[in-house]
Design a protein around this nucleic acid. Structure first.
Lengths: 193, 193
DNA sequence: CCCGGCTCTTCGCAAATGACAAGAAATAAA
DNA sequence: TTTATTTCTTGTCATTTGCGAAGAGCCGGG
């Protein structure tokens, strides 16, 4: 168990030097999540800023009719946490569940704030994570408006093929904003081409 | 022209003391935007962290077919800027246009970074802005998936009635992810109730 | 190994929405 | 004011998508 991947990830933004990345990484604690295990359950306060090194996580919420709606997918080398619950210390409306066995590293809210205090570079890193999340969500929202379900399916298949290895089709369907029935039809059409 | 509203806004998050809020506000420069004027045009780097004191701004992007798609609406007492372009110094894909005469205050990227450096509290404030943007976009994306167009229209009417005072219906339609034709029909149905 | 449950596909039908076009209403320009 | 332009509504029709149900396929627990 080494911090290698985490250090690489911290440096990948070009906001953190190697020395600082090592310093930051040393604060993180190893964490494993078994298949179907939860990183976070709704109704609780998110207290782990989790770097997913290996595995796959799906986040989802329940709508007013009780339907399970996928809010996001996370594969390796990403930070996984619910920003609003984490930073505002409020109850999470989302669940984060491992689709396969996962391993990674986390720091708590307190540890993160200590690092923000002491290491200028880590604040910039933290901000870049938020900005990235916001940008990708903007792109997704725009695609919900401007693209057809089939176009969204095709784009997801090309840009995030790993999702199709790890996630159930019904969960991909709700992520795309359609029913599993409709996704099935789209896949049938698409496979003809 | 006073910083009063800006100071109040800075304090509203409870992350910034009055003294610090005043200190921060003093760095901001007054800015007016005439009706139909632009705060930001696509293809340029967003360099203004703009506090909108009065007025109304619509942000929009063009899809691949050249259709104008509303990405957001901003009324008074909000921070208006494109986070990805601003923080990453990349070209904006969005336009920000004043729907009516606007007035407010801005700081540049450089000024914001200086404040982040010198004032711990302002960093927390800046983060809370990003977290809020992310949370509201999450809510919107989820509503695009789980709610019907009529439900989204009804919710917007209740929670953001000012949008209907300032924005054209066709712009509200693209924000809701439907055509203006469809919005017109929904309004007709809705008015019967 | 077999059973039960979950997932995915398929079908028929209903409802929602989009595309296109025409006309009315509102707004801006001359 | 008059004219031109834009916005909004309405109509028809085609397409997409959802809903409910049924059946096939897959997987895990006993």
């Amino acid at each position: 168990m080494s911090h290698q991947k985490l250090i690489q990830f911290l440096q990948s933004t070009n906001l953190v030097s190697l020395k600082t990345a090592e310093e930051i990484a040393n604060v993180f604690t190893a964490k494993e999540i078994n298949r179907n295990g939860f990183l976070l359950k709704e109704g609780r306060v998110c207290n782990e800023y989790f770097f997913l090194e290996k595995g796959f996580i799906r986040s989802f919420a329940y709508d007013t009719d009780g339907n399970d709606v996928t809010t996001n997918f996370y594969s390796g080398n990403q930070v996984v946490f619910e920003s609003s619950s984490f930073f505002n210390r409020t109850l999470s409306k989302e669940n984060f569940q491992a689709t396969v066995d996962c391993s990674g590293w986390y720091i708590t809210y307190e540890q993160l704030n200590n690092l923000f205090h002491s290491l200028y570079e880590f604040r910039d890193f933290g901000r870049s994570i938020l900005v990235k999340l916001l940008a990708s969500l903007k792109t997704r929202t725009l695609s919900m408006i401007t693209e057809t379900a089939e176009q969204r399916y095709e784009a997801l298949l090309k840009t995030n093929p790993e999702i199709f290895r790890y996630a159930a089709l019904k969960h991909i369907a709700s992520y795309l904003g359609i029913t599993d029935t409709s996704l099935s039809r789209i896949r049938k059409e698409y496979s003809k081409k």
